[in-house]
Simulated assay, not measured.
Amino acid sequence: MANGLLPDHALMKMPSFKAMRSFVAAAKHRNFSRAAQTLCVTQAAISRQIRDLELYLGTELFIRTGRELELTEQGVALFDAAQLSLLNIFQATERIRREQHDSRRITLCCSPALSALWLSPRLRGFIEANPDVDLNVITTAHFLNMEPGIHPDIFITKRTDARPGYLHIPLFHETVFPVCTPAFLAANPQLCTPEGMRQSRLLDLDPYGRSQLSEQVDWDVWFAFQSPDLHIPAARSQPYFSSNDYNLLIQMALDGQGLVLGWDHLIRHHLQQGRLVRPVEDQMILRESLQYLVINEQQAQDPAVGRLKDWLIAQFA
């Protein structure tokens, strides 16, 4: 054999792509005619592909009951695997195709909380001002372990080592302070003191999976920083509710379910709209935690990327 290469038996034994595509369409629609219509082929072509696939596997994939089809046990097993595999192939090829033919498609990567709480209320302005730009926003809690093939044009992150080959523009230090709804504050006037806060319903941030997102500031850190001499017996303290999902904690606070630590850049619009208030003026400025705009060096001169960069910097300013 040329070059001494051994045959790839796994690839050689795989059924044809057309057969698998026909099978998935027939399994989804439970009918050869409808499957043929969705693939723009004849019913005879679908029937032939399914028959060849069943002969190859040595088993029936469908039970034919009148005009409808039912999957056999073997058909169900194959459909579960084939549908996901074909979907993954489609998504990968579409991503490659768009990258080759659409130079104005920009990918922005940030944390789920920043996307939902900071970016979402502002995006309309950028989209309306830049109708020629297709913006793709992906979120992750793991900036150092992203899926292969994903190369965002811009990150918003505290990680300066998110990717080699990126430029770093410092944005701001994070600022943290307690917030709640006006109604919750009115019902709990004791929130103006650390002791009163400690005995209120506290919504706490769990550190699980958040090491690449932000400095970990929970209520124990807050009280230790603001009132190191504060001692409240455990029996007098209401139990914390905790979650590593910051969006959940903010939504619970907006629903009047407790007091939460707010990151200024994430909840500022809620303060401006009066949906949340600060019961005290005390705050923590995280001098060791700096958020960056991280830009792919190869895309830095692209006009569309430049517009997004300038817009983001203006929004943070």
Rank of each mutant, 00 (worst) to 15 (best):
S237E: 05
A253E: 08
S227Q: 10
L249Q: 00
W263H: 08
S242C: 05
L230K: 09
M252R: 10
L254P: 02
L261I: 08
G262Q: 01
Q257L: 04
D218Q: 05
Y246L: 08
I232K: 03
G258P: 00
D255Y: 09
S237Y: 03
H265S: 12
S243G: 02
I232R: 07
Y240F: 13
L261G: 08
W263N: 12
L261R: 07
Y240D: 14
P239S: 10
H231T: 13
W219P: 03
Q238Y: 12
A234I: 04
H265Q: 06
F223E: 06
N247L: 08
D245L: 09
S227V: 08
L259G: 11
L261F: 11
Q226L: 02
S243A: 00
D218C: 13
I232L: 05
Y246A: 06
Q251N: 04
M252S: 14
Y246C: 04
G256M: 07
H265V: 01
I250H: 01
L259C: 05
W219E: 09
Q257D: 02
R236I: 11
A224K: 09
H231C: 10
D264G: 00
M252A: 13
S227T: 07
P228V: 01
L259F: 06
F241T: 14
L230H: 05
G256Q: 01
P228K: 06
D264I: 00
L254T: 00
Y240H: 14
A235E: 15
L249W: 07
D220A: 10
A253M: 04
N247K: 11
L259M: 07
V260T: 11
Q238C: 09
S227G: 02
A235F: 15
Q226Y: 00
R236A: 15
Q226V: 05
P233Y: 14
G258R: 08
V217H: 10
S237N: 03
P228R: 02
V221K: 14
D264M: 02
G262R: 02
V221D: 15
